[in-house]
Amino acid sequence: MANSSNPLHQSHHPLIIAMKGHPGTGKSTLARALAATLGIPLLDKDDIRSCTVTLQHLLPQSQSQPLLNDLSYRTLFEIARTQVRLGLSVILDSPLSNKSRLDEVVALGAKRVIVVECRPGDEIEWRRRLEERGREEDGTQGHKPATWEELMRLKEGYKGCDEYDIGDKAERIVIDTTAVGVTTENMLGRVLQFINSLE
């Protein structure tokens, strides 16, 4: 339930919370918890990308993935821009896999951008979660890696561009989503504490 005393809710100084991380790192789980607690819109790139799956057969295979991925980001950012213009804070759930995407987020005009980076320290646990999700979705999401091998190919395709210096473009908190004993509540508490420390 949204907290009516929450300073982010319908603020005239909107904030963007931009999730960052590879598939299966737990960023969507944390993003949903943040949205529910703060009572602000959650915009998920995967929701948009899922709507473009039927377009893949209209394009050459070599072009469909990058073109539809770019379309999904552009749509995500345009929707976010509208919310920010209305004075609403938003949470953006996407891999944010290169610096140019962060630049686009910053250009949306929010008072502040906070990057919540989900970086799992335990690769075995990360792999288990990714492949469990892949089995549950049973290939219905087409564009998401369902196996560890698919994820490794995706990471190789980034060619290191996903590891970039945020600099002074945004505030950043890094969360190890696979730390021993960590729960969604723990992670949520850490992020909220970080946000409050910036006020």
Rank of each mutant, 00 (worst) to 15 (best):
V105D: 01
S72W: 03
G87Q: 05
V174G: 07
G157S: 11
T52C: 00
V182G: 00
M19Y: 14
G139V: 04
K20N: 15
K144I: 07
L76C: 11
L55A: 14
A110G: 12
P120A: 04
S5C: 14
G167W: 01
G87V: 01
E199D: 12
L68E: 03
D138G: 08
T29H: 09
D93H: 01
T37N: 13
E132S: 10
I91G: 09
V191A: 06
K27I: 01
L67K: 05
S5W: 15
T147V: 08
I40R: 10
Y164Q: 07
I40P: 12
Y164N: 04
C118K: 10
E149W: 03
A2C: 12
G142K: 08
M152S: 00
P120F: 06
L88T: 13
L154W: 03
R85E: 14
L151M: 01
D46T: 06
Q65E: 04
N186I: 08
L68P: 05
A35H: 08
L130T: 04
G157N: 06
C118S: 14
K159A: 02
L108M: 09
A18Q: 15
Q65W: 00
Q10E: 14
A2N: 14
D165H: 06
Q141P: 01
A80Q: 02
R32I: 08
I166P: 03
Y158K: 01
L43R: 02
T37H: 09
T82E: 11
P95E: 00
G134V: 05
L188V: 02
E150M: 05
T29E: 10
V84N: 08
R81V: 08
K27R: 12
G121L: 01
A33H: 09
I173S: 00
I79T: 05
P60T: 07
L42A: 06
L92R: 12
S11H: 15
S4Q: 15
S197A: 13
L15D: 07
R135V: 00
T37E: 13
L59P: 03
D93V: 04
K159T: 01
N186S: 08
